[in-house]
Design a binder for these strands. Structure first.
Lengths: 192, 192
DNA sequence: GAGATATGATACAAGTGTGTTCCATAAATT
DNA sequence: AATTTATGGAACACACTTGTATCATATCTC
């Protein structure tokens, strides 16, 4: 029995895969040591099926993480084309990512489960690099301060996403407003 | 056999407690499902002793979390007195917390392990409230923008700590510099 | 130094999650 | 409609972790 790879023909497999991935993301976000039984149950799928589609629990987590990272990728795909200015790109970025709250929550809570996997780290690093390029470009254009390290700015973006995610969990504030707040803070801080 | 409470006389107990707590914080930061055997080993203590001092694993985690939260508390104790202005208080806060990198890392990675415990949540909420008060005060003084929600500012502080912690892990940048960066970003953002 | 007390090694019990196999059934593909 | 293929339930083995009990030994208190 071979594990079906990315795009398999049979409708049942695709359906099961989607259900499992969704259930995995939801449950593992809230409880990082959720059981495979829990996940299978929550996905409306037999535990056997889960093992047929994902060799181990680690594989499932990895697949879920890749799914989320890819969601980020596609959401920010046309960023550079749509942006009217280099700063505007950051605004669009917050607007694009914040609606993906489930994916955001999963990745935020992933923690140490991921940092051992080289493939995952590679994807993550690449996304960080893309942000770094955006920062460098904006520095060149004179929009961002050249006195502040690029690394800090990149991590600041992540920190602002973290802040937004926290706020999203506590209060029900709209994605749009949070994106505006994050962007405004990114640009001007919060002083009067 | 009763579990020794906070301050016990016997030197052996205090020594073991400190070693276990330190080992717990270190190991659980990196691997949230570290084994009690691992922790005992890393602490140079028999597993039996660990169980004698902490009834369950949950108790140990809770004790570690409280320890870290208290470290934050004492570090920011004299904040309001030492601050020369309402904004300066935030600067001092970043400077006080960032050196506590081990505690910061532990609390950041704590995630769902903590949010079920009412006592822990209470302490956390209280610290958030203190920050909220600082924000409100600064708003009244005209230092912080009244158009930006307090909740966002409070979570922003946490987000900036997150950013700083990320940067601390990747690059070796000094606590002081990171505190300055966080504070500057808090006030003015990162635009030119 | 004598007595009290914590320690740690060992052994044990119990529970739980993982991963596998088998097989009848249901749902796809052709 | 016939065939292929995925499904899910059950039962199983296995490893691992938690938590407890015992007891000789080391260490602290007085």
């Amino acid at each position: 029995m071979t594990i079906p790879t990315t795009r398999n023909l049979d409708a049942r497999i695709r359906k099961s895969q989607a259900a499992i991935l969704k259930a995995g993301i939801e449950l593992l976000s809230k409880n990082s040591d959720a059981t495979l039984t829990d996940i299978a149950e929550h996905a409306g799928v037999g535990r056997t099926t889960l093992y047929r589609l994902y060799e181990t629990k680690e594989q499932l987590i990895k697949a879920a993480a890749i799914h989320c990272l890819e969601a980020f990728d596609t959401a920010t795909e046309h960023l550079e084309n749509d942006a009217k200015s280099d700063l505007h790109a950051f605004h669009l970025m917050f607007k694009a990512i914040l609606p993906l709250s489930a994916e955001l929550e999963f990745l935020m809570g992933l923690g140490d489960l991921a940092e051992d996997d080289p493939e995952l780290v590679a994807i993550y690093q690449q996304q960080q690099n893309e942000i770094a390029e955006l920062v460098e470009y904006a520095k060149d254009e004179g929009s961002l301060s050249t006195e502040i390290p690029t690394l800090w700015m990149v991590n600041l973006v992540e920190g602002l996403l973290y802040s937004a995610w926290l706020t999203l969990s506590e209060e029900k504030m709209s994605h749009e407003k949070l994106a505006d707040l994050a962007f405004h803070t990114f640009c001007h801080g919060v002083t009067r």
